[in-house]
Amino acid sequence: MSPLLAVADVGKRFRGLVAVDRVSFTVEAGDIFAVIGPNGAGKTTLFNMIAGVLAPNDGTITFRGERIEGRTPDAVCRLGVARTFQIVRPFPGLTVEDNVVIGALLHRTDMAVARRYARDILATLDLFEKRDFRASALTLPDRKRLELARALATDPKLLLLDEVMAGLRPTETDRMVDILRGVNRDMGVTILLIEHVMRAVMALAGHMLVLHHGAPIAQGRPEEVVRDAKVITSYLGAEATF
């Protein structure tokens, strides 16, 4: 069976500066795949190419057998790739529920159906009680979950999470890990995440990829990758927080 997402020899340069250098990996359906690496390693650029924000200079990105590189973000989302933003951007003036309804309307035309579905998701993510709050009134952990809820409402096959743990306290991180496990297991959503918090990565990821200066330096199961000498010297030794 072909993988859900296949990234092959993808490269991106900004004014001659190489941000991502011939990166290849595949994500199998049902997996949780983590991309880690120090700041400036090209993680977000890689993400933006998959999400359709940037077009790669070389290489191909294939999602469910369809080439998606260079498509627009909305087209990619309609194919079943949802994302969250590193700096969360909920629609501030709308209620929590309406935020999620907008996501749910992507594949639902009936308002009542979309609203019911949005409420289900809010309940799963412990936001149901706050559904009438304005999004701007939420705390950061709540906003992170709202952003996740909104993305999930678009019925993605693949969920791209950009540092969804950043700024969370350890207890909140654990809660988010539980939520993501549930999303992966119960809703059948494959997850590709960029993450700095190694504790969460080790707890979640089935496979991971380490980027350094835009190039992949290690790939595989987490317990193999963390033993890799290159990874330890270039990244984990210095920055990792277990």
């Binding site: 627009t72 909305d74 949802a82 951007r89 629609f91 501030p92 907008i102 309307l105 992507l106």
Partner: peptide, 24 residues
């Protein structure tokens, strides 16, 4: 209250986020 209306409001509030939610 329609789907189109919600799409408009999403665009008004944050175009980038609207696009990421699949809105053309």
């Amino acid at each position: 209250r329609s789907r189109l209306g919600y799409q408009w409001i999403a665009i008004r509030e944050d175009e980038t986020a609207a696009r990421a939610l699949g809105i053309d």
